[in-house]
Design a protein around this nucleic acid. Structure first.
Lengths: 179, 179
DNA sequence: ATAATGGCCGAATTAAATTCAGCATCAACG
DNA sequence: CGTTGATGCTGAATTTAATTCGGCCATTAT
C-alpha cells in the first residue's frame, strides 16, 4: 500500500459523493487494511488499479483519515480506561482544550450538547497514574470536576464506524474483558 | 504488507515482552500503518526483514489487534455521536450484552467500576436514528436507561493508545469539530 | 452530433514484501 | 570453559504486489 502521509497533508479535494462501492471499500478496509489491492478489488468487484484509484481518492478527500494499527492496551501496559466528565463553565476560548489535548493519556475529547461540559476518554497504567492525570487536569484554570467513570471491563471496542456497509461482517476487534 | 487475517485468527503466542524497539514500532504504525518495512526499519533502526519479523510477532502476540482504516464519520453520514449510560442491575449473564454488541451503531461497550451500569459509545446519522437505537436498546429485557450524553463537537479522537512511546509525535488524527 | 471527461481494464514496469543463507550474541549445560 | 541451541539480525535473491500507462467505454456538456 502507498504512504498516505502526502495525501493526508495535501489539501482536501472537491470530495465527490461516496458511492456504494466506496462504502464497501471502507467497510473492508476498516476490517483489515493490510490486504492487497487485488484482494480488495476482488471483494468489491473491481480491478486492482481501479480499487487503488478509489482508495487514493478516499484518502485525498479525507474519508479515510488514516490507516492505523490498533493496539492492545494491555500490551503497552495501559489497561485502565476511564471516562472523565468535566464542567467547562469557567472556560475561555481554547487554551484549556489545547492543554488537555496535549496529555498523551487523553484519547478523545467530546463536547456534550445542552450541558457546559466535556467528556474525556483517558487510558492510564493504573489508578495511581489516573489520579495524577485527573489532578493535573483539574489544576487547569477554569476546569471543574463533575463525575468520572472508571471502566472495569471493556466488551467491545471497534475501530471506527462499524456499519459503513449494509451487510456488515461479524464484530472482530472485540477487546478482551480482562482489565 | 501481509494479510493479518491468519495471524489474528491464529491462537495467541507465548507473548515475549514488548521491548522499547517494539514500542517505537507500535508508535509508528499507530500514526501510519501504510509505510513500507524499509521505511519502518529506518525509523526504528532495523533492516526491513527485521522490522517485518517484529511486526509479525506483534500481530501474532495480539499486541497489534488489527490494522484498520480510520474513517471520517461525516463521509459515511454518521455525524451524531452519543454516550449512553445504562443500568444493568436486571441482567442475566451475557445475552443482553450480545444483543447490544450486534447493533452496528454501537462502537464501544464498557463496564463501569462500582456501579452496575455500562457505558455505550454509539454513532448514528441523526437524532431520529439515535432515538430509534435507544428505544431498541431499552426494549432489551433487563436494560434500564439512566443517562445519555449527545455529543455536539468532537475535538480529539485519536486512533488508540497515543503514548506508546516516550517521544510521541504531535496529535494527528484530530476529528474536525464540525458535527 | 461530437468532444471532453471520468472511470475502468489489462499489460508492463517498478517497488516492496518475503524468503533464505549466513553470522553474531547469549544463555544453558556438560 | 567450550559446546550447543535458540534468537535476532543482516544483505542478497526471489516472489509478489503496487503503480504506471495506453486504450476503451459510457456519460455529460458543448
Amino acid at each position: 500500500m502507498d504512504t498516505e502521509t502526502d495525501d493526508v497533508q495535501r489539501n482536501r479535494q472537491p470530495a465527490r459523493e461516496v458511492d456504494p462501492i466506496d462504502r464497501k471499500i471502507l467497510g473492508v478496509l476498516v476490517d483489515d487494511a493490510t490486504i492487497s489491492y487485488a484482494e480488495l478489488g476482488d471483494r468489491v468487484g473491481l480491478s486492482p488499479p481501479a480499487a487503488h484509484e478509489r482508495v487514493k481518492r478516499l484518502r485525498r478527500s479525507g474519508a479515510i483519515r488514516a490507516t492505523s494499527a490498533i493496539i492492545d492496551p494491555k500490551a503497552v501496559k495501559k489497561p485502565l480506561l476511564a471516562f472523565v466528565h468535566i464542567d467547562t463553565r469557567g472556560w475561555g476560548k481554547t487554551p484549556e482544550l489545547m492543554a488537555i489535548s496535549e496529555c498523551p493519556e487523553v484519547e478523545e475529547i467530546h463536547s456534550v450538547a445542552g450541558d457546559t461540559c466535556m467528556l474525556l476518554k483517558v487510558r492510564t497504567e493504573d489508578t495511581r497514574a489516573l489520579e495524577g492525570l485527573l489532578s493535573r487536569i483539574y489544576e487547569t484554570p477554569g476546569v471543574v470536576s463533575t463525575r468520572s467513570y472508571v471502566v472495569l471491563s471493556t466488551y467491545l471496542e471497534r475501530p471506527v464506524q462499524p456499519d459503513i456497509t449494509a451487510q456488515w461482517p461479524a464484530p472482530k476487534h472485540m477487546a478482551t474483558p480482562v482489565y
